[in-house]
Design a protein around this nucleic acid. Sequence first.
DNA 1: CCAAAATTTAAACAATTGTTTAATTTTTCC
DNA 2: GGAAAAATTAAACAATTGTTTAAATTTTGG
Lengths: 206, 206
Amino acid sequence: MKRDQSTEEKIKAAAKKVFMTKGFDGCSVRDIAKEVGSNVALLNYYFRSKEKLFELIFEGAMSDFLQSMIAVFSSDLTLKEKVEQLIDKEFSFFLEHPELPMFILQSLHQNKTDAPMPSHFLEPIANTGIFEQFEKAKAQGEVRDISIRNVTLLLMSNVHYPFMSKKLTMQFHGITAEDFDEDLKKHKEIVKELITNYLFISNPKA
Amino acid sequence: MKRDQSTEEKIKAAAKKVFMTKGFDGCSVRDIAKEVGSNVALLNYYFRSKEKLFELIFEGAMSDFLQSMIAVFSSDLTLKEKVEQLIDKEFSFFLEHPELPMFILQSLHQNKTDAPMPSHFLEPIANTGIFEQFEKAKAQGEVRDISIRNVTLLLMSNVHYPFMSKKLTMQFHGITAEDFDEDLKKHKEIVKELITNYLFISNPKA
DNA sequence: CCAAAATTTAAACAATTGTTTAATTTTTCC
DNA sequence: GGAAAAATTAAACAATTGTTTAAATTTTGG
């Protein structure tokens, strides 16, 4: 019989916190149990194993990671507006979840998850029609001749990397975390202008 | 008395390979010993501990990581030429060491090294006079009004991230490693044009 | 050639790992 | 209220962790 749901949720929250900051290999199940204020047997009682628990956390993180895109893409804005909104929304989102890009890329890099990205993550994005909108804009000369894959890489580079590079950048320039956060704000506007200037042709043919 | 140097070097090479791909937490000293074809006691005989060995590998990696900049900066090219050359050189370099950006950022992110970046890494860069060259170009209206820190972040984002995102991008677009490597080549040219277009003002005042 | 030094090895160390067992407590529900 | 179910705990499990010890081997230098 079902009981207070909060224990399972508390474990998930603790696991998310610990996995996100230390990584799968960087923590023990006892670290997570301590964060919960309980013991290790309870973790396996609810989630069977460290790996299973991680899979769960990772899938949730990946979902969050891609979620912010979908809302923007499925609106009925122009392509340029969508790009600008995407950059805005992603920066806002990652300001609240700054560890997410590193967690996702690191976990994938070290094959901490074997499964390919489930289609339920990707289909919603494809279903927004964003790819068709882009191809159309390209055909009409509004947008530079560039593949959607390269556009994606451009956007991800400029949106994800700043949040992954905090420690490196702070050390590199000898600045504080506060300095860096200031830079980040400015950087959002720079990236917006940088990318829209590049992608969108100012005087379209048609 | 000194003897065949190759053992120490073989251990370092093996450690570099294993640490780079699996990370500090993701491997055991026995993984490294197996890669060497020896046993764990030998590792500690030469390097005292896993941590000490890692510090050594990390410092070497950081040195490589920053090295490619210095050669370009200390040449006597124009700023625009330097930026273009930097992007070219970094892409070439990371094509041969694609795991390096992830290794550096990941290690810093998880505080696998406590020491701040030693000045012998940073001083050579400052000594090239690149910062002064940039400020001068800015004052003369050749370059957009943007801080050097934001420029650095732009460059690093667009040069490092592509190599860190291979797995994510492959899964996201459902493409092969060969497809991705093709994209990378195209991406280098895109990044070059993207950044120079943005930074350098086409019709300088002076 | 041979002792001393340096290198390499196998084995053991205590601590920590993920997981399981079995007992105990708490909740559920008639 | 009390038996059944669910939740929680402490303890133990074997395996793996980083490190050390001590013995064996190889190299060095007179």
